[in-house]
């Protein structure tokens, strides 16, 4: 489809945007870093685009009790610079720093990563590891969906065509929580993840954990939790042998595909290594926990 075949709506308010979206024909665009590539590759079937970039009410980071509320226009650079996000969701900041490069972080949004629903979206594993919610608004209704229930498959989500992602709420981590984010790519900038993993570990005593959430990217049609690996971490000493076992369990839960960038076998080994490496860094003192006033 030629670029001249698209109609672009550019509303100034959320209610105008929801009105445009009510017949479900338009494709919402926040930063556009995914959609512009898809337009070039002729992968956008909609002829109508909903440009959100002038809706200033969608650009915010708000402290709301147990959650940080992030508007749909808030970019990765905004998250990296935010004192609040650095303090309460450092795992999200760590992931945000690996998104594309500066130019992409300046345009790309967390909500756009959710909306695009690629299993390799770098902003997504931290949302699963911390427990986020996606706000969907339509003209007639509004709902919040747990991140774990949001994705149905590659580029498939529970969002109805007349609904707009207006906000992603990120659950705050607690002082003392440990975390890591690991991304394996072909280079460190502007590379799609071969695999990625985010983890949040809640301590019981010194370096033993009562709660663990490990979320893996690019190893299944959606981001998935590594539940057996999580269970293996709880209430035990993380010896080197134990950490390797946790990595192996995570790998067993991964069911990646072979594609142009890597084989399934490579991805399974890489995820085991990434999980081991993250745990190793925590156990050996290379990582500090959330301290609640780190800035």
């Amino acid at each position: 489809m030629k670029v001249s075949h698209y109609t672009v709506h550019s509303p100034r308010t959320i209610s105008e945007a929801l009105n445009i979206l009510k017949d479900g024909a338009a494709r919402p665009i926040a930063g556009g870093t995914d959609v512009m590539v898809q337009i070039k590759d002729d992968l956008v079937k909609e002829t109508e685009l909903l440009n959100l970039s002038y809706i200033m009410d969608l650009n915010y980071i708000r402290d709301d009790g147990d959650f940080i509320r992030v508007g749909a226009l808030t970019t990765y650079s905004d998250l990296i610079r935010s004192r609040l996000v650095n303090e309460y969701s450092p795992v999200l900041v760590e992931a945000a720093r690996t998104v594309g490069a500066v130019q992409i972080q300046n345009r790309g949004t967390l909500a756009g990563n959710v909306g695009n629903a690629s299993p390799a979206g770098d902003g997504l594993p931290p949302l699963f590891a911390t427990g986020a919610k996606v706000k969907l608004q339509s003209e007639a209704s509004e709902r919040e969906v747990d991140i774990g229930d949001y994705f149905l498959g590659v580029r498939k989500t529970v969002r109805q065509p007349n609904e707009l992602i207006t906000e992603v709420s990120v659950r705050k981590m607690k002082p003392g929580d440990y975390y890591f984010f690991k991304k394996i790519g072909l280079r460190s900038a502007n590379a799609i993840s071969l695999v990625s993993v985010a983890a949040v570990l809640v301590p019981a005593e010194v370096l033993t954990f009562k709660e663990a959430r490990i979320a893996m990217g690019a190893v299944a049609p959606t981001v998935i939790r590594a539940k057996s690996a999580e269970a293996a971490i709880l209430n035990c000493q993380l010896t080197d042998e134990k950490m390797k076992e946790v990595g192996r369990l995570a790998s067993e839960e991964a069911h990646p595909i072979t594609d142009i960038r890597a084989t399934a076998e490579y991805r399974k080994q890489a995820i085991a290594g990434a999980v081991y490496e993250g745990l190793y860094e925590i156990v050996n003192g290379f990582r500090s926990p959330v301290n609640g006033s780190s800035v």
Binding site: V8, S10, I29, G31, G32, T33, M36, V37, K40, L49, N51, S53, Y54, S77, V102, Q103, I104, N106, R107
Partner: peptide
């Protein structure tokens, strides 16, 4: 801010 202009729609720069 540095951005890649190939990924910015002209509709976004009013």
């Amino acid at each position: 801010k540095a951005v890649t202009s190939c990924l910015v729609m002209i509709s976004q720069v009013q």
